[in-house]
Design a binder for these strands. Structure first.
Length: 224
DNA sequence: GACCAGGCACATC
DNA sequence: GATGTGCATGGT
C-alpha cells in the first residue's frame, strides 16, 4: 500500500466530509428498496428515481412477491418517471426472480454469502453490471466493496489521482488498495463523491468552491 | 433546445 | 478486450 495515496485519499475524504457529510446513504427504507433503487438509478437523476419509487409504494408494489405477480407492462408504467422504463421493468423482473430463486426472498440468507461468489452471481442477473452489483453489495448487504461510478472516475482523474483511461475495475482496485476496507467508510466515501460530483464535477467543469480546491494544491493537480 | 443524470446489454470489430 | 449504440424521463 502506498502511504502517499493512502494519505491523499483520506484527506480528500476529510475535506468532503467537512463540507457536506455525513450524508447517511443509501436513501431507502429497506435492503430490497435499495436493490430496486440501484436498478432504477442507472444513468438517471435520483429525483426521477424518487418519483418511480413513490409510485411503487403508492401501489403497494415495493414488495417482492407483488412485483413478481404484476405484469411487466404495468410495472413499467409505474416506474416510467425513472426513464428507460421498459428496460428497467425487465431488469426488475430479473432481480425479483433471482431473489426468490436463490434466497427465497431472505435478505439475511443473501447477506451470509461470501463475497467473490455473491458478486459473480449478481453480475449474472440481467440488468446488473459492476456498479449496480457493488451498490447492492455495499448499501443493501453491508459488504466492504468500493462503489465506482462516473463521478468517481471523473473526480479522481481530474485531480490527477488516476489516469483518465482507467476502467471500472482499475479504479476500484486503486481505491480498495489505498483505503482500509470498512463498510461505513466506503458507504460515506462514495456518497460524498457523488454529492461533490453533482455540485462541482460536471462534464463541463466549473470547480469554484469545490471542497477539494485545497486538495488540488496539495495534491499538485488541478480540477480543470 | 441542448445538456445532463449515481449504466447496462448487445452488436461489431 | 475495446468501442459504439439504443434505451427515455425530467431538471437546469
Amino acid at each position: 500500500m502506498s502511504q502517499a495515496y493512502e494519505k491523499l485519499l483520506l484527506e480528500a475524504y476529510r475535506l468532503m466530509l467537512a463540507a457536506f457529510g455525513p450524508l447517511n446513504w443509501w436513501p431507502g427504507d429497506s435492503p430490497w428498496e435499495v436493490m430496486v433503487g440501484a436498478i432504477l438509478t442507472q444513468n438517471t437523476a435520483w429525483s426521477n428515481v424518487e418519483k418511480a419509487i413513490i409510485n411503487l409504494k403508492v401501489h403497494d408494489m415495493l414488495d417482492v412477491s407483488k412485483m413478481a405477480a404484476t405484469p411487466i407492462e404495468q410495472l413499467a408504467q409505474l416506474i416510467r418517471p425513472s426513464g428507460y422504463y421498459k428496460q428497467k421493468a425487465k431488469k426488475l423482473k430479473a432481480l425479483v426472480s433471482f431473489f426468490q430463486r436463490e434466497y427465497g426472498c431472505d435478505i439475511d440468507k443473501m447477506r451470509k454469502e461470501e463475497l467473490p461468489g455473491l458478486r459473480d452471481k449478481l453480475l449474472g442477473v440481467h440488468g446488473i453490471g459492476p456498479e449496480t452489483a457493488d451498490s447492492i453489495l455495499l448499501y443493501a448487504l453491508d459488504k466492504p466493496v468500493f462503489v465506482v461510478d462516473a463521478y468517481t472516475k471523473r473526480i479522481s482523474s481530474r485531480h490527477g489521482i488516476i489516469p483518465e483511461s482507467y476502467n471500472y475495475y482499475q479504479t476500484q482496485e486503486f481505491f480498495e488498495m489505498h483505503i482500509v476496507p470498512d463498510v461505513a467508510l466506503y458507504n460515506e466515501y462514495h456518497a460524498l463523491i457523488v454529492y461533490t460530483g453533482k455540485e462541482f464535477c460536471r462534464p463541463k467543469p466549473r470547480c469554484t468552491g469545490c471542497p477539494l480546491e485545497r486538495f488540488n494544491a496539495e495534491g499538485g493537480a488541478k480540477c480543470t
